[in-house]
Nucleic acid binder design. Structure first.
Length: 385
DNA sequence: GCGGATCAC
DNA sequence: TATGGTGATCCGC
């Protein structure tokens, strides 16, 4: 069909240009994700763009992107001002001091496991109906997908994607409505197993847990690799679910590591300063928890693409100069590969600090807005009881 | 103290 | 046809 395609694209009506907007439309659906190595990203990008470009949602995304662009330009202006006034040297000095202080807090004495269930919701449904495992399937509906199995990911279908767009990418996609009772049941089965390796393990959502296995390893006289394999086998044997495990000296690094050999794999980062710094030297900043799409763009604008760049002699001062104290501290820590390695803060998860209910609804053109508000308030009232 | 922005899941 | 919901934190007013 190639000649036909060529004829079609050259036979366009005069003055009509093919819409190339998709090339610059960086939706969240095209970045690298586990199971999506073989996806034709340009094709996905194009399909998402074609199905998005005229929607209110798209215009809102554009508004947000433009605002981020202005923020980045403002930071770059401040950088140029500092450079032209030769003020960076002072920041370089205070940054060097901060980095030294942070380095002194490095703790290599723990072994942390981050256990991350593979495509958790989708895998739960596959357990209930094994025929689902062989076909592309997503949890959710035409409105929104919360996760997709690996069959579906081959087509570019992924979490947080609207189902109607996923259907364009994969017309045979099967949907499973969410079943939180099922996920909670399976999650507690998994947690019962993990508690055998660290009774104080830290659950992060239904499908992620952090385990401090330092003492467990000593008691068993085992290597981290062997224990990770043992836990994954144990979970699979007793629940039928696979997981991936990241192993490192702190929770931040362990979390990054659990993603590296997903699904059904593990990654061990050796417990030495050299190994950690070598790791951050090739680690894209976007992999660091807390650095999202916007911060990645800002850092990229400053020429900072790898975590180690954040603490380099030439740019740590820039980070300190341009970001707030909290933000720069977090960035420098990330660059050094520092993270929490002690027992989880007692009062950190002490209690919920807020409660909210929100609903998306179609435009009401002023009519029925108060009724809608009352309805949502009633749901909030329920949630508070 | 509040609302907007950002981020994670 | 059509793009979720909850909670947390930070920051600038």
């Amino acid at each position: 069909g190639e000649p036909d395609m060529a004829a079609e694209s050259s036979g366009r009506v005069d003055g009509e240009k093919e819409d190339e907007g998709w090339r610059s439309y960086e939706s969240v659906f095209t970045n690298q994700k586990a199971g999506m190595d073989d996806v034709d990203r340009d094709w996905v990008k194009k399909v998402v763009y074609e199905n998005s470009k005229n929607s209110p949602h798209f215009r809102n995304e554009q508004r947000k992107a433009e605002q981020a662009t202005r923020r980045i330009q403002e930071m770059l202006r401040r950088k140029e001002a500092l450079l032209s006034q030769n003020q960076l040297a002072g920041y370089d000095q205070s940054a060097a001091k901060l980095v030294a202080e942070l380095e002194a807090t490095r703790d290599l004495s723990h072994w942390w496991f981050h256990v991350d269930m593979d495509a958790f919701y989708a895998s739960c449904h596959e357990l209930m109906d094994p025929t689902l495992a062989g076909v592309p399937m997503a949890v959710g509906g035409v409105g929104m997908i919360s996760t997709a199995n690996y069959q579906a990911r081959k087509y570019g279908v992924r979490s947080a994607m609207p189902g109607f767009i996923a259907l364009k990418l994969c017309p045979d996609l099967k949907f499973c409505p969410s079943d939180f009772a099922l996920y909670k049941t399976k999650a507690s089965e998994v947690r019962a197993i993990l508690a055998q390796y660290d009774p104080n393990f830290l659950a992060a959502g239904l499908d992620e847990s952090y385990l401090d296995v330092t003492s467990c390893l000593e008691a068993r006289g085992e290597s981290p690799d062997a224990l990770a394999r043992c836990i994954r086998d144990h979970v699979r044997r007793e629940t039928g679910l696979t997981c991936s495990i990241g192993v490192a000296c702190n929770r931040m690094l362990a979390k990054i590591c659990s993603d590296l050999n997903k699904p059904n794999g593990e990654f061990v980062l050796q417990r030495s300063r050299e190994a950690v710094l070598a790791f951050t030297s090739s680690l894209p900043v976007r992999k660091v928890p807390g650095i999202g799409k916007v911060t990645e763009r800002i850092l990229s604008g400053l020429g900072l693409n790898l975590a180690r760049d954040l603490v380099s002699r030439s740019s740590a001062g820039l980070v300190v100069a341009l970001f707030s104290e909290k933000a720069s501290g977090a960035l420098l820590r990330a660059g050094l590969g520092l993270g929490r390695s002690g027992a989880p803060d007692e009062d950190a998860g002490a209690g919920r600090k807020g409660i909210s209910v929100e609903r998306t609804f179609r435009p009401l053109r002023g009519k029925g807005l108060e009724a809608k508000l009352a309805e949502i308030c009633a749901k909030l009232e329920d949630a508070m009881m």
